[in-house]
Amino acid sequence: MERKKSRWSFLSNGYLVLVLLFIYLPIFYVVLFSFNESKSLTNFTGFSLRWYENMFNDETMLQSIYTTVLTAVIATVVSTVVGTVAAIGLSKAKPLVRNLILEVNNLPVMNPDIVTAIGLMLLFISTKVQLSLTTLILAHISFCIPYVILTVMPKLRQLDDNVAEAALDLGATPVQALVKVILPQIYPAIFSGALIAFSMSFDDFVISFFTAGVGINNISMYVYSMKRYNPSVNALSTLIVVVVTLILIAANVIPRIKDKKTKKEED
């Protein structure tokens, strides 16, 4: 029995390692070739840092990083706030109204990105709104909100309605009831909604491509319009890998340390 179990776990762990290798293969590849001496994407000819140097001297590329981050941050903050508020309101609405609005809310999630993108572009163009950074951000907000609502909504349904009502009965204003009673209970869902919104915005190409204005390129648009493969892009990817790894580690380690601290204090 014991042997059988160990063979089983050997197989399953081996399988997981294979899956991880598959998922990380292109990332290793990009990191490796970011240090390549030549332009080639197939032959590693020697170690050099020239693509990093190029990246930091390439204003258009740096600008695209700035645009990507700025858009993602604003879109995340706005869509999280609007989405959460709307979800709370919706959770108290009549089922018929709620379902109708949720159905419409689902449209951008179900719709292919390219359809959403073209719809927004046609809207801006036909209303003579000049495409700009603002239209880019508006487009991002509008495809991020549905995801926030979809993440926050299920958590709200699990909440006990009576608690909020009790707060109101005890003389709390709706705002107080919201801030003191409801929000603390759904905080984790809001946080994961914000994370999804951020990663959607950060990664988007299609919608940005059709809605950004003069001089506005995000990272995806920069990569897409390259006439020749510019290996500085590998350096850029490596940089993103490093930053994302650090953020994810921080996001997972800090709460754990806090937990330990509070536990110690409790002891």
Binding site: F205, S220, S237, V244
Partner: peptide, 13 residues
């Protein structure tokens, strides 16, 4: 983690 890396960049890789 890899979901955070730009899809275009991964596809180029």
């Amino acid at each position: 983690l890899p979901m955070w890396i730009n899809m275009l960049l991964k596809t180029y890789a």
